[in-house]
Design a protein around this nucleic acid. Structure first.
Lengths: 222, 222
DNA sequence: ACCTGAACACCGTTCAAGT
DNA sequence: ACCTGAACACCGTTCAAGT
């Protein structure tokens, strides 16, 4: 029952023929193309329709307005990011804190780096009306995934988990966003990854206690 | 020689009579009013001019286009924030790491909380073309201030300072932004402040070594 | 069921005319 | 030196007509 980020942005009419499903896909791709080649300011519904090979009217048959189109594209992107981080977290359930932190830092950076051009292109309209709500919804999924993972550590125990999960996720985003914005290359990203790990480890060690070493296998497979 | 964030956004023509200085101020205030009352989507150059009590033509005499107007308003806001953080940092030069971190966390939260309505209203257009460049420029000032402060600690010594300064500033922004976005009240902000302090402390202690206790007064007034 | 594109309303921007 | 506001170009959105 995991909520999809783009749930509220469903096209006006659901494609029932394969022809229109292709049309919607073409519009999505055309939007990203225009965003990449012409930029946000130059993005026009007519231009998108042209590049998609359809008329404006067709575009408006599937999206109530330009904003909804942009949000739909952004939503797909955020969905993909959230999913990949969720998976990275799930794989590390029941492992060491250091191991979890390392995986998490990797996942954050990969998410933003995977399709760097698209990331950057989407960052501009991201703060427009509604875009922030989407961002928050995706952040909630990530936060939840982090919390679930932390709850299964083998070597540390936490009091509250809500706050640390929130702090770690949002805190890690900032440096990554900044580094990307400054056009950081592979070497800088490597140094950044290291710094993020120190950041998360320092914080999480500080607010947690070592776990009692009675029977380590007891809570191994909860 | 500290660069002003809004340096590149100077009005088209510099007001030489007091009448026009008042006009520019009125336009600034009108922009924020419209942003607050009608929202970003409804913000129209004509509407701003109307509320400022001038005609559109007058507005365009001082700002080359709508985007420049928005950026100018955003620039003033970011300037104010950066300045207040710079000052908070300066006051703590030569003090303890814990003391610095505490002051810094306070400054971050205060900056975003001071005029919360304006903060929120400005967050929408912040990511539009050019807005991101402004944000980065302000972030650079803050980063610089943090670095300068850290260089004067009495109890710890760091290897590199560039990375920690960058990480701490950008990392702290995320949780604050998120909390504000979720409509956090005073109690939540207090808990957040505490968490931010742990975050910064944990990280900075981790990457620094205790200072030798030879003659503490030697590097006191560098 | 899906597509077209001329037509309409509205907004950013200009500029000739005013004081 | 500063202000005005009608006029223009362009973009988002619609809808009657097509297949």
């Amino acid at each position: 029952m995991r909520a999809s980020v783009s749930a509220a942005l469903k096209p006006r009419k659901t494609p029932v023929q394969s022809r229109s499903a292709a049309t919607v896909l073409a519009i999505f791709e055309a939007t990203i193309q225009v965003l990449l080649k012409q930029g946000f300011e130059q993005l026009t519904t007519t231009r998108v329709a042209d590049r998609a090979g359809v008329s404006v009217g067709t575009l408006y048959q599937y999206f109530p307005n330009k904003n909804a189109l942009l949000l739909a594209v952004l939503g797909r992107y955020l969905d993909a990011i959230a999913s990949s981080i969720e998976q990275a977290c799930r794989v590390r359930h029941g492992s060491t804190l250091r191991c979890m932190v390392a995986a998490l830092c990797d996942a954050f950076i990969h998410a933003k780096t995977r399709r760097l051009d698209v990331s950057k292109a989407l960052m501009q309209p991201a703060a427009k009306l509604g875009g922030d709500a989407l961002r928050q919804q995706a952040a909630r999924r990530v936060r939840r995934a982090v919390l679930d993972m932390l709850a299964t550590t083998t070597d540390r125990q936490f009091g509250d988990l809500q706050m640390p999960a929130m702090v770690v996720t949002t805190a890690a985003m900032g440096p990554v966003h900044e580094a990307i914005g400054q056009g950081a290359g592979p070497p800088e990203l490597l140094a950044l990854r290291q710094a993020l790990e120190e950041l998360c480890m320092g914080y999480l060690l500080r607010i947690s206690k070592p776990k009692q070493h009675r029977s380590a296998t007891a809570s191994d497979r909860v």
